[in-house]
Write a protein that binds this DNA or RNA. Sequence first.
DNA 1: CGCTGACCCTGACGGC
DNA 2: TGCCGTCAGGGTCAGC
Length: 253
Amino acid sequence: MEGQTVANVIVRERRLRWPVPTEIDQLLPGQKINSLSRRAKYLLFETDAGTAMLHLGMSGSVRIIDVDEPAAKHDHVDVQLESGKALRFRDPRRFGSLLWAPDPLEHELLRNLGPEPLSKQFDGDYLWQKSRGRRVSIKQFIMNASVVVGVGNIYASEVLFLAGIHPKRQAGRIAADRMTLLAATIKSVLERAIAAGGTTLKDFYGGDGEPGYFQQQLEVYGRDEESCNRCKSEISLIVLGQRSTFYCKYCQR
DNA sequence: CGCTGACCCTGACGGC
DNA sequence: TGCCGTCAGGGTCAGC
């Protein structure tokens, strides 16, 4: 889409996580997409008039189609291009969002986000400093986007297993050297997952239309009652902050 | 300010 | 076959 011009925007359903603002259909048509980028899990489509911010939520997806392809159920938005192709956004659960901002990094939802996990500024020292005095569990801590972005529920469990840290351990009670290991493990898990094309549990497909393969490398996620690859004991399942959490009670302290 | 739990919504699946 | 309860990979927000 980069460098292409928007011909028209069709909004069939405005009721997403937040209502789709009229700027999307009023201002986007006629604009050239200067660049595509990303901050946290928001996809950013930058134009001279402003930036469209797209979040896929839990069940959202986008794909490139011919403009005349009939819309199916849950196909909420089409961004039609002058080329005759369109970006089609589908989201059955409507937890996703499509917003508009003159300056996205100053948008209320982006301005207080923590660092990107693969950036240089995200390291053990940062995690250690940020966590002092915090009593919340380390798993909820690393899933908190104001601490660090990009660590979702699958990777949080995986990271903590590989770092040998119990998911319920209070964030503020983890020593600096373990935080260094934790930050490095977050980076390596995300890098490996990206290299594998992501994790396809049931219906995730990457931008290339291919499923991911990282699920074949999962150590604990979804493996409750199966045996730990390291010590052979049974993987445990608990709920932390309403999210399923998998871990080995012998390998993680 | 930090933390917890409720909530947003649809579809898939298992048990009966 | 159908109904009901449960669960799902994300994230925000009110209220304490």
